[in-house]
Design a protein around this nucleic acid. Sequence first.
DNA 1: GTCTATAAGATGATAGAC
DNA 2: GTCTATCATCTTATAGAC
Lengths: 179, 179
Amino acid sequence: MPTAQTILDSAEAQMRARGYNDVSYRNIADALGMKSASLHYHFASKTDLGVALVRRYAENFRAAYDAQIQGNSAPLATLDIFIALHRQALAEQELICLCAVLGAERGSLPEAINDEVRAFFIGNINILTQIFNNAGRPKPERAAKASVSALEGAMIVAGVNGDMDVFDATAELVRTQLL
Amino acid sequence: MPTAQTILDSAEAQMRARGYNDVSYRNIADALGMKSASLHYHFASKTDLGVALVRRYAENFRAAYDAQIQGNSAPLATLDIFIALHRQALAEQELICLCAVLGAERGSLPEAINDEVRAFFIGNINILTQIFNNAGRPKPERAAKASVSALEGAMIVAGVNGDMDVFDATAELVRTQLL
DNA sequence: GTCTATAAGATGATAGAC
DNA sequence: GTCTATCATCTTATAGAC
């Protein structure tokens, strides 16, 4: 595996647990048995690292979604795939969404990173708008905005409370929009 | 106004915009025209400051809620007050909920602070559980968990996207549970 | 590509004068 | 209560050897 990818892997895991500002080049280097100076060869600045990280995160999410929807699934089945994609890492590794973390720290982040976070949210809103639209729901974009918000918030509250039922109850509310 | 309160005021405004880890004793002191050493007289450690901050935030929220519900309002009217309490600071000052920010940074915070954040979420879930219960809704606690999650997430996504409609669309979804 | 060495600045925190 | 002065440590980042 290319070193740049292992750097992003470590950065992602740490930032999803502790936030952008608590993760340093040293933290990441230590976790990989490297020196912090070496990381600057792959990502000249922390901003570069952050931008690359969110971009990869969004691409991976989209790729996983595209791989799981087989052509013309029913809207509810497609929504359940979208929900499951959010649920996974939270249940298995207690990791919340990278963009929920970065979105909460927005005021301290370089605008280039905020732009990528926004693109992730808008991309997900677009995915869900299409699903709700296919189901013939009125105002599909508003349903999509509410769904993205609910699921992002659910990861944070479920994480703090140590209660996966918080996530599942929220997912149920999101699903009612297609029932 | 007591100095301790003005310190908390500045800390709250800054942390709700930039996160816990990007706000320092120096930042707060500068904003107040003081020296960082002086802050340690009022809050010996940053953990003490954080705990006091979340505790005051939860108390203020609860007091504002109690002041606005007049005795026996209808469930939907009461829910709208709860929603409006979340909407205010976001619309007027672009400040998201303190506990949404701290919840996102959970893995880097002292456990004493995480405990206060959890108490805030549980307190709000209890408030909403009572509202949904009064309305005769089945599984009122699950509706409450979903509502808290949705509103916390809505503040983050609305903030990043610069789109208050994200919040309002989410609030609408929360309200459907009483329609 | 990775290292050592280093820079300039920020951080939470303390001691002690006023 | 607030200050000056100071501390040990951490931060992002660079220069240059290997």
